[in-house]
Amino acid sequence: MEVRTIKVFTTVDNINLHTQVVDMSMTYGQQFGPTYLDGADVTKIKPHNSHEGKTFYVLPNDDTLRVEAFEYYHTTDPSFLGRYMSALNHTKKWKYPQVNGLTSIKWADNNCYLATALLTLQQIELKFNPPALQDAYYRARAGEAANFCALILAYCNKTVGELGDVRETMSYLFQHANLDSCKRVLNVVCKTCGQQQTTLKGVEAVMYMGTLSYEQFKKGVQIPCTCGKQATKYLVQQESPFVMMSAPPAQYELKHGTFTCASEYTGNYQCGHYKHITSKETLYCIDGALLTKSSEYKGPITDVFYKENSYTTTIK
């Protein structure tokens, strides 16, 4: 009895394709271990004539594949690729409408935090270190965002349907971005203890939790000093293409032309909904596939993004 075979390709990165001759009487799992086709788990399936010449994702289970996976995804987590594939199996079914010149995501599976993050990423200057993220990001900007969303979920250790947080998501993504040249110098002034300067680099240099107003941050924000008295913390120097200011959701007025974009969060910790506000020729609110415009805006804002380049204080 002759062994019926077909020729397929296996890959971990969709760049390096490895030619395989597979036995049609055995499952993919018996031949390769966990195997995925377009995100779908085909591990328990036997090869079919229609699979001839198709590319299958496999887990990096030998040295060659491990090197290829690390170079593309910059992670050695053995569960990463499987999590990416199972997320992709959902995100490829989502709709990605162009809204006001940006790629958004039609609401499904509690994905409003991903839509808000995706919209924000198209408006701030950011370059990702893992080629996987950078490639998928370019495709997302062009309207094909399924891979990018699935990668975000995998890097953030999230599953489809789980509630997510924009600030946490951005923080994970910033860790995989090139923020080497970003720098922030802060000064804390206390009447009792004097003053202390701190220099922050990388992710810490672009994120701040405690106030939404970048102007206020430049002037000074009140913080408790270690001595128990009130101290003032203010920005001395900022070198970065953008800054992200966050605070627990509270009524906040966004003035046209003073910011790049913002995240609105309605609801409580267990259950809520994100919308995205962007400042173009007027203010726009993007909620999944829905767009509304207004000249002014007041609502429960939790993150505001500002364009920056270089700032030095005039406070002496």
Rank of each mutant, 00 (worst) to 15 (best):
Ile315Met: 15
Tyr284Trp: 11
Tyr138Gln: 15
Thr103Val: 12
Met26Trp: 12
Met244Gln: 00
Val67Gly: 13
Ala262Ile: 00
Ala177Ser: 09
His176Gly: 01
Gly53Thr: 10
Ser294Cys: 11
Gln196Leu: 10
Pro97Asn: 06
Pro131Trp: 06
Ala205Pro: 03
Thr43Tyr: 09
Gly53Ser: 12
Lys307His: 12
Gly272Ile: 00
Asp62Cys: 14
Ala140Leu: 13
Gln251Glu: 15
Ser295Leu: 13
Glu215Asp: 14
Thr314Arg: 15
Thr75Ala: 10
Leu254Tyr: 00
Ala154Gly: 04
Thr35Gly: 06
Asn268Gln: 14
Asn157Pro: 02
Arg141Met: 12
Lys316Glu: 15
Glu144Val: 07
Val67Leu: 15
Thr313Asp: 14
Pro130Lys: 04
Gly288Tyr: 00
Glu52Gln: 13
Lys255Thr: 11
Ile223Arg: 04
Thr169His: 03
Arg83Gln: 08
Val189Gln: 08
Ile315Leu: 15
Phe174Asn: 01
Lys201Arg: 15
Gly210Trp: 05
Val3Arg: 14
Gln197Val: 11
Ser294Gln: 14
Asn268Cys: 10
Phe128Trp: 13
Leu126Thr: 05
Thr258Lys: 09
Thr159Met: 12
Tyr297Glu: 01
Lys106Ile: 09
Tyr214Gln: 03
Gly33Cys: 05
Asn157Lys: 14
Ser240Phe: 00
Asn268Asp: 15
Pro60Arg: 06
Ser246Gly: 01
Tyr96Gln: 02
Cys112Asp: 05
Asn187Trp: 08
Tyr84Val: 05
Glu2Gly: 10
His256Val: 14
Val3Glu: 15
Gln123Val: 06
Asp13Val: 06
Pro60Ile: 07
Tyr57Asn: 08
Asp287Tyr: 00
His51Leu: 05
Tyr234Arg: 10
Val189Cys: 11
Ala117Met: 04
Ser79Met: 15
Gly299Leu: 00
Asn157His: 09
Tyr214Arg: 02
Lys275Asp: 00
Val304Glu: 00
Trp107Ile: 02
Phe9Ser: 09
Asn129Lys: 12
Arg139Val: 07
Glu68Gln: 09
Val221Ile: 14
Thr120Pro: 04
Gly267Thr: 11
Val22Ser: 08
Lys229Val: 08
Glu71Arg: 10
Ala69Gly: 06
Met26Asp: 12
Val189Ser: 11
Tyr306His: 00
Lys275Pro: 00
Asp77Gly: 06
Leu121Pro: 03
Phe32Cys: 12
Ile223Thr: 13
Gln238Tyr: 01
Tyr57Arg: 05
Arg167Gly: 01
Asn61Phe: 15
Ala231Val: 03
Tyr113Lys: 01
Thr211Ser: 10
Asn129Met: 07
Gly257Ala: 08
Asn129Ala: 11
Ala247Tyr: 01
Ile315His: 15
Asp180Trp: 06
Lys54Ile: 13
Thr266His: 08
Ala132Cys: 07
Gln122Val: 03
Val243His: 02
Ala115Glu: 03
Phe259Lys: 03
Ser181Gly: 12
Ser246Gln: 01
Pro300Asn: 14
Met209Asn: 14
Asp135Val: 08
Gly194Asn: 01
Tyr72Gln: 09
Val8Ser: 06
Cys193Trp: 01
Gln237Met: 11
Gly267Glu: 15
Tyr269Met: 15
Gln222His: 09
Lys316Asn: 15
Thr10Ala: 10
Asp23Ser: 13
Thr116Ile: 04
Lys275Cys: 10
Ser79Cys: 11
Cys271Glu: 08
Glu239His: 12
Val206His: 00
Met24Asp: 13
Lys106Gln: 12
Leu119Met: 07
Thr232Met: 14
Lys93Asp: 13
Pro224Glu: 11
Gln134Asp: 07
Cys225Ala: 01
Leu254Ser: 00
Glu296Thr: 12
Val206Leu: 04
Asp135Pro: 03
Arg66His: 09
Cys182Tyr: 07
Lys233Ala: 13
His74Gly: 08
Thr314Glu: 10
Val206Ala: 00
Glu296Ser: 13
Val185His: 03
Thr232Gly: 00
Pro249Asn: 02
Ala262Lys: 00
Asn187Lys: 14
Gln237Asn: 09
Gly288Met: 00
Leu102Val: 07
Cys193Tyr: 02
Lys280Glu: 11
Asp38Ile: 09
Thr19Ser: 14
Arg184Lys: 02
Phe148Lys: 04
Asn178Glu: 13
Ile15Asn: 10
Arg141Gln: 09
Met245Gly: 00
Asn100Arg: 09
Ser263Tyr: 00
Leu81Phe: 15
Tyr269Arg: 15
Thr35Met: 13
Pro249Phe: 00
Leu186Asp: 07
Lys298Phe: 11
Tyr252Lys: 04
Ala262Phe: 00
Glu253Pro: 07
Met85Arg: 06
Ser294Ile: 15
Gln270Arg: 08
Pro241Ser: 08
Tyr297Met: 06
Leu186Val: 15
Arg184Asn: 04
Gly220Asn: 01
Val8Gln: 02
Gln31Leu: 14
Thr302Ala: 13
Glu2Cys: 12
Phe128Arg: 03
Tyr208Trp: 09
Gly161Lys: 05
Asn268Thr: 10
Ser181Gln: 14
Ser86Lys: 14
Gly53Lys: 13
Asn14Lys: 10
Lys275Ser: 11
Lys219Ala: 13
Asp303Val: 03
Ile152Lys: 03
Leu283Glu: 01
Gln20His: 14
Lys92Gly: 06
Gly53Glu: 13
Lys307Leu: 12
Phe80Trp: 04
His74Leu: 15
Glu308Pro: 11
Asn129Trp: 07
Tyr84Ile: 06
Pro241Val: 00
Lys158Pro: 00
Asp13Glu: 06
Thr43Val: 07
Tyr36Val: 06
Thr55Lys: 10
Gln195Ile: 13
Tyr234Leu: 07
Thr302Asp: 00
Asn61Val: 10
His74Ala: 06
Ile277Glu: 03
Ile315Arg: 15
Asp62Phe: 06
Lys7Gly: 13
Asn111Pro: 05
Leu126Gln: 01
Ser310Gly: 07
Cys225Asn: 00
Pro60Ser: 07
Thr64Pro: 09
Cys112Pro: 06
Gln216Ala: 12
Gly39Thr: 14
Ser86Glu: 15
Glu253Gln: 09
Gln123Asn: 08
Lys44His: 12
Asn100Met: 09
Tyr57Val: 11
Lys7Thr: 14
Leu133Phe: 04
Lys46His: 13
Thr278Glu: 05
Lys233Glu: 11
Gln122Ser: 03
Thr76Ala: 15
Met209Ser: 14
Glu204Leu: 07
Phe32Ala: 07
Ala250Gly: 13
Met207Tyr: 08
Glu204Trp: 07
Leu173Ser: 01
His48Ser: 14
Pro249Trp: 01
Val221Arg: 04
Ala250Val: 10
Asp77Glu: 12
Ser279Met: 07
Val243Asp: 01
Asn14Val: 06
Glu264Gly: 07
Thr35Lys: 05
Val304Thr: 01
Gln251Asn: 14
Gly164Trp: 05
His74Val: 04
Cys190Tyr: 03
Thr76Val: 14
Pro47Gln: 04
Thr282Asp: 13
Gly194His: 02
Tyr96Cys: 03
Gln134Met: 09
